[in-house]
């Protein structure tokens, strides 16, 4: 699905990724974890082609991402902060994204799921943060792409929507899709992810299941396992 080889990226003097090698198989939910500044977002954005790597190659479905935009047809992306042109109506935004990608019939189902019906005729600028995030999620799941990238998907969601989101993720997984998630909420990660990738100082420190991580760190609890990695490395 995704293969990353020897990925380097620095912003000015700040080296963020120092040779990341990662290959992600088809299917399953992978969580990318790591402390602040470990390069999670940079890694994801590199896959999306938003950040241009200094070195290394990234392939999605076998297509090199460099100077290519077509491979993004395989990806659905949920950005961390959703901000839309404030003068467009929700309906128009949906139409626009459909227009930009390809038509889909998935939207009716999703509108109902997230109860977006009453907001369709409102301007995006007038929506609350939570509703915006719903629209954001809605746009992500509207298309049936094999790879879904979610950057902090839980931000600003009410508990009901959060449950729906989890269900949705599970549904997509059941369809055999690959889902890449970053999150700070450890319980959320623990609950849904099949595999985690732990980034530390620009390198992959750990890749495997949560159970493997617990074994490796000799911790019973996932949060503690993470904490122990961090304290080990900073002690």
């Amino acid at each position: 699905m995704v293969s990353i080889e020897n990925l380097h990226k620095s912003f000015g003097k700040n080296q963020v990724l120092k040779g990341v090698d990662l290959s992600i198989k088809n299917g399953g939910i992978i969580a990318v974890l790591g402390p602040n500044g470990s390069g999670k977002t940079t890694l994801i954005k590199s896959v999306l082609g938003m950040v241009i790597p200094n070195k290394g190659t990234i392939k999605v479905q076998g297509e090199n991402v460099k100077k290519n935009s077509n491979y993004r047809h395989y990806i659905d992306y949920l950005p961390q902060i959703a901000n839309f042109p404030s003068n467009l109506k929700v309906k128009e935004l949906i139409k626009m994204i459909k227009d930009l990608r390809k038509n889909t019939n998935n939207d009716q189902h999703l509108i109902e799921l997230f109860k977006l019906q009453p907001f369709l005729d409102k301007k995006l600028g007038n929506l609350s943060g939570g509703t915006k995030q719903k629209v954001n999620i809605f746009l992500t799941f509207m298309f049936d792409s094999p790879l879904i990238i979610l950057d902090e998907p839980t931000t600003g969601l009410d508990p009901i929507s959060l449950i729906r989101l989890k269900n949705l993720i599970q549904e997509e997984k059941a369809k055999g899709k690959t889902i890449l998630i970053t999150s700070h909420i450890m319980s959320f990660v623990e609950e849904i992810s099949d595999e985690i990738v732990f980034l530390l100082e620009g390198k992959i420190y750990f890749k495997g299941t949560i159970t493997e991580l617990k074994n490796k760190t000799n911790q019973q609890d996932f949060e503690h396992a993470i904490a122990s990695i961090l304290s080990e490395n900073h002690a």
């Binding site: 999306l48 082609g49 938003m50 935009s69 077509n70 491979y71 993004r72 047809h73 990806i75 992306y77 950005p79 902060i81 959703a82 901000n83 839309f84 042109p85 404030s86 994204i97 930009l100 990608r101 746009l139 990238i149």
Partner: peptide, 17 residues
């Protein structure tokens, strides 16, 4: 600056920069 986030959303779409 105001449409920065939206631009990011667009960047993730199969569109040329």
């Amino acid at each position: 600056y105001n449409s920065k986030e939206f631009t990011e959303l667009l960047l993730a779409q199969p569109l040329k920069r």
